[in-house]
Structures are given as C-alpha cells and as structure tokens.
C-alpha cells in the first residue's frame, strides 16, 4: 500500500510542475487530478490444515523475482526469526516494505485456529503484474520456530476472476533449538518466550521441518503432545484475483 501511495504522489507532483511551467499568464488553469493508476486486487484465503497448531497472523507479500522470504540452506532474516519464534510478522513485513522488489504487503488480523481460515486482500498496480510473485508467511505457534510459506507463487498470468489453490509445507527457521519446552513455545501449549535474538539451533539455516516429537513419543521434557504433531501440508492457500 505504501508503495502505491508514493507513486500516486509522484504522478501528482509531476502534473503540478508541468502545469506551473505551462501557465504564461496570471490565471492558473484548472488541472484535474490525474486518474489513479489502475490496480489489481487479490484475495488470499489461508486455511489451517493442522490438528493442533494455531497459525499466527498471516503476512502476505506481493513482489518481483528479486525478493524471497527465505531460501533453503540460508540463515533466516531477523524478520523471519521474529515471525518464526514469536509469531510477530511486523518486522518481516517492514523488511519487505523496504525492499525495492516488493510491491505491497498485508497482514491478517488474528491467529487462525486449526480448521479455521481468514481472507486477506492485497492490492498492486496493474503495471506491476507482469512479474508478480506472491508469498505468505506464518508461524505454527505451538513450536519453537516452525513456519509455513507459500513461496514466490507466480501470479503474472492470472486474470480477473481466476483462482489458484496450493498447499504449503512446514519449514524450520533454524534460529532456535527445537526444545519443545513450554518456556520456549509462545503458543497456548507453552505460553513461553517468543523472540530471542540468540541463534541456538544446531545449524543457523532454514530447512524443511522434521515435525514434533512430543511427550507422548518419549520426549519427557516436551510440553507438546500427540495433538500437536503435524504432517504436510499444513495450510491451504487460495488466491483469487478480484479485479
């Protein structure tokens, strides 16, 4: 949204400058506001497919090819770490807003319970559609640092009214050891700490998540149970282009 607003402002300024140069007499001609550049709206509906893992408020990012939320094998950004450990998407979205390859960002309003869903709208300039990718990002909150993402889905061919449905898998951000202890799990199963800047996983890199072990499977110090285990996919993402 911020990017669109800036571009509209620039166009308006340009028109005002031209008008000032053209006026040779004392009467200022009426210059109508330029029409806003055409936009396209996408509705992104995320459904929680797990049994016992609420999803933190969804971050939605529309971007070009040069941006990605994460890469397998690379260290997570601080924004992704904030999301993965504490469910807070604000730093990740601020990082994205500061990236020249990002067109727009949006956030869900609340966590999504297992079986629940939320629809989030995101608007981009039609001139940005040619190379448009969409990513979503959210934490499985009854974990140390599990996240799930739709990663740079190509929407450039979508026309108004088209829909696309995909499923997402769970990743381990690699920023926190998978202790499964209540003190390290921010969700309702733990009520513990969220973000901590220390990076104490066995390797500081994003990988596929290997799942929950849990106390029911012999991990005595785990605060998680059979109910918190999950298999992929963990969320369903339905994207509809509205206009």
């Amino acid at each position: 949204m911020k990017v669109i607003a800036n571009r509209i402002l620039l166009l308006a300024l340009g028109a005002a400058v031209l008008a000032a140069c053209d006026s040779s007499d004392s009467v200022t001609p009426f210059v109508p506001d330029p029409p806003p550049p055409p936009t396209a709206t996408f509705e992104v509906t995320v459904t929680n497919l797990t049994n016992g893992q609420p999803l933190s408020p969804i971050g939605v990012i529309a971007h070009a090819d040069g941006y990605s939320v994460f890469s397998i094998g690379a260290a997570a950004s601080v924004g992704l770490e904030e999301l993965a450990e504490g469910g807070d998407n604000s730093v990740l979205l601020a990082e994205a807003d500061a990236d020249a390859n990002v067109f727009a960002t949006a956030s869900g309003g609340a966590p999504i319970s297992p079986g629940g869903r939320e629809t989030i709208s995101i608007e981009v300039l039609q001139s940005d559609l040619a190379g448009m990718r969409l990513s979503t990002s959210t934490m499985l909150v009854n974990t140390n640092d599990a996240v799930t993402m739709a990663n740079a889905v190509d929407l450039s061919a979508m026309q108004s009214g088209d829909t696309l449905t995909l499923r997402t898998i769970a990743y381990d951000a690699g920023t926190e050891a998978d202790t499964e202890m209540a003190a390290h799990i921010p969700g309702p199963a733990g009520g513990g700490e969220g973000f901590n800047a220390a990076r104490d996983d066995d390797a500081d890199r994003v990988s596929m998540h290997s799942g929950i072990v849990g106390a029911d499977d012999g991990f005595a110090s785990s605060s998680l149970s059979n109910q918190h285990r999950f298999d992929n996919p963990v969320s369903m993402v339905r994207i509809e282009r509205i206009n």
């Binding site: 929680n48 049994n51 016992g52 059979n226 109910q227 285990r229 298999d231």
Partner: peptide
C-alpha cells in the same frame, strides 16, 4: 489409548499415527 478427541474436529491433514 493414544489420544482423546481430536483438537480439530473438522476435516484436516492427519497428524500421523503415533
């Protein structure tokens, strides 16, 4: 008995056998 009622009583991805 490995578990009580599902936390999610709608159709969802199975968490796997224990």
């Amino acid at each position: 008995g490995a578990a009580m009622a599902d936390a999610n009583t709608t159709v969802h991805i199975h968490r796997g056998a224990l």
